[in-house]
Design a protein around this nucleic acid. Structure first.
Lengths: 239, 239
DNA sequence: TTGAAAGCGCTAACAT
DNA sequence: ATGTTAGCGCTTTCAA
C-alpha cells in the first residue's frame, strides 16, 4: 500500500519512507503491473488508431501525431491497418473492444463501416472519426472542408487557363471522394466548362492505382487529353 | 469456471451447458476482460514496434508488415516512435515493460540504446533488433548486409565513370552508418580513388537534413562538386 | 503516516 | 461434467 502511494503520489508519506521505497524500486528494477491496475481502474491507457493504410504518407502523418500526443499523455497507441477492407476492420474492432481500449481513432474504410462503428459506440468506447465521415453516425470528427478546398484548387487551375481538367478520385462510397467529386463538377459547371466522362477516373486507393490512371489519361488522343490532373489521393508524390 | 471453459474451449462440457452459456454470452453482449486474463496468464497478446520515425517510408513498410503478421496471429501491435531520441525511447521501454508486452521489435536509436535493450532482456521480454545492431547485445536480429550492398553500389557508380562520389550518411553511432561508411571508404580506396573530406556529410536522420546536405554539396565550387551522391537514408525520394 | 482486509475478473488446481 | 478455493498485483476503504 505504501508503495502504491509513493508511485501514484497520493496520500501522505514521510520523506524517509518515500526515499526507502524509491531506493527499493530502483534496486529491484520494479515496474508496476499495468494489467492489475487496469483490472481495478477499468482503464487500459491504450488508444487505438484504425486506419486504412499506414503505407500512405497521409495516414503516416496522422499516426505520427496521434502517437506523439498519446505518449505525452501517458497512453500507448495500437496500430490497426484495415487495408480498406471492411472484414479486417471488423476483426480489429472486436479485438479492440475485448482488449478494453480507452478510445479509438478511425478512418472508416467506407460507408460499410457503419455497423463496426456502431458496435464501438454500443460498448461505450469513445470514437473519433478522422478524415472521412459516415452518414448517420454522430460522434466527434476531424474532417477537412473538401468542398471549399477542391473549389479553390479547381479554380486555380481554371485561372491558369486549363479547360480540360481530369480528376483521379477514390471510390464513391467514401465521403471525401463524394465531396471532392461534387465540388469538382460544381466548380467546372459554374465556370461554364463541360464535364467529360473520359476525364473522370476512379481508383480503389491502393498503390499503383493512381499511376495506372495517370497513364490512361496520358494515352488519350491529343485532343482528348487533359492539360491538368486533379488527384484526390497522394500516391503520386510518393512513388 | 464453466463459462471460462466454454470460452477457451478447454475441458469437457456437455452440449446443453455450452449452448446455455453461449446464448447468455450473446444476450449479455459479454466480452471477456483481457486485463484479468493477462494478470493470470502473464501474457498480453501485445507486441510492440519501437522505431525511430514512422514518417520514414522505410519504417512504414516494416510497420505494415509487422502489423499484418501480428494481426494474423491474434496479436495487437503497439506503435512506439522514438524520434531518434534515447530519452523518449527509455520512457517507452518502461511503459512497455509495465504493460507486459509479449515481445518488442526495436530499431535502436543509437548505441546509447544499449541500456534500454538490456533492461528489456533483464525483464525476460523477447527482443528482436531490426536494421541496426548494437555492440555487445546478443539477441535475434534482422539486419542487412551493408558492407556488401554499399560496395556494389559504389562500384556501380565508379563503373559509370564517377570519381567524385559524395556520401550523405547518418550519425556514426548507428551501426548501419558505420558499416556503410567503412564500406564506402574501403571501396573508393580499393579502386584507387581519393577520399575527400568535403564530400563526406553526416546528418541526424531527421527530415530536411538530407535536403540541406544535398544543397551544401551542390553549392561547392564546380571543380570540388561531386558527380554522384550516395545517401544512406531515403528522405530524398520522399520529399 | 502507515498497514490490513477485501475485491477487481479471471483461471489453475483441486474437489465433487 | 461442473463447482469451489485461492490467488494473480493492484487500489479502495477502513483501522491503527
Amino acid at each position: 500500500m505504501t508503495v502504491s502511494r509513493v508511485i501514484n503520489k497520493s496520500g501522505k508519506i514521510s520523506d524517509k519512507t518515500r526515499k526507502k521505497v524509491e531506493d527499493a524500486i530502483k534496486e529491484l528494477n520494479y515496474i508496476p503491473n499495468t494489467a492489475a491496475k487496469s483490472l481495478i481502474s477499468k482503464k487500459s491507457k491504450i488508444l487505438s488508431l484504425l486506419i486504412t493504410d499506414i503505407t500512405n504518407p497521409f495516414y503516416t502523418k496522422i499516426a505520427r501525431g496521434a502517437e506523439d500526443k498519446a505518449m505525452q499523455m501517458g497512453y500507448r497507441l495500437i496500430l490497426c491497418n484495415s487495408d480498406e477492407n471492411e472484414e479486417k476492420e471488423s476483426t480489429y474492432i472486436d479485438m479492440l473492444i475485448s482488449s478494453g481500449t480507452d478510445g479509438v481513432l478511425v478512418t472508416a474504410s467506407s460507408d460499410q463501416s457503419k455497423k463496426n462503428i456502431r458496435k464501438l459506440i454500443k460498448h461505450n468506447i469513445p470514437v473519433v472519426l478522422i478524415d472521412r465521415t459516415i452518414k448517420e453516425i454522430y460522434c466527434d470528427q476531424v474532417i477537412s472542408d473538401n468542398e471549399h478546398t477542391t473549389k479553390k484548387l479547381i479554380e486555380h487551375l481554371i485561372q491558369q487557363g486549363h479547360e480540360r481538367i481530369a480528376i483521379i478520385n477514390g471510390p464513391l462510397d467514401v465521403s471525401t471522394s463524394i465531396e471532392r467529386f461534387d465540388s469538382y463538377t460544381a466548380t467546372l459547371k459554374q465556370h461554364g466548362l463541360s464535364i467529360n466522362e473520359e476525364l473522370i477516373l476512379e481508383t480503389d486507393l491502393k498503390h499503383g492505382d493512381t499511376d495506372n490512371s495517370v497513364e490512361k489519361l496520358l494515352s488519350l488522343p491529343e485532343n482528348k487529353r487533359p492539360t491538368a490532373i486533379f488527384t484526390t489521393n497522394n500516391f503520386i508524390a510518393y512513388h
